[in-house]
């Protein structure tokens, strides 16, 4: 059980948070103009990285804010936390 440094509340147990999966998958602005393949790419296809991954987390049992987090999925070490809309750090 790791500790997440919520950018709004500070360090809290991971059990207070829920994960929203891979970050920076932008919802297409014009979905109707995509073909089925392109839509499926957005909808389902994931990098599912073993290693440093950028992902979305929500402080579900706290401030309920969504934010981004950079975590190494091979050892759960967290490298960075940043707010929605902020530029992803270079890791």
């Amino acid at each position: 059980m790791f500790i997440i440094n919520c950018p709004y509340c500070g360090e809290r147990d991971q059990s207070e948070f829920s994960c929203g999966g891979e970050a920076h998958i932008i919802r297409p602005k014009q979905p109707t103009e995509l073909n089925d393949d392109q839509w499926a790419e957005y909808l389902f296809m994931r990098k599912n990285i073993k290693g440093v991954q950028f992902e979305r987390w929500n402080h579900a049992h706290g401030c309920r804010k969504w934010f981004n987090l950079v975590r190494d999925t091979s050892n759960d070490k967290i490298h960075a936390v940043y707010k929605m809309g902020e530029k992803p750090p270079v890791i």
């Binding site: 929500n58 579900a60 929605m84």
Partner: peptide, 13 residues
């Protein structure tokens, strides 16, 4: 509620 918050905060801020 979670889903709506998700869209609101991340897709349509």
């Amino acid at each position: 509620l979670s889903k709506l918050e998700d869209y609101l905060q991340t897709e349509w801020p």
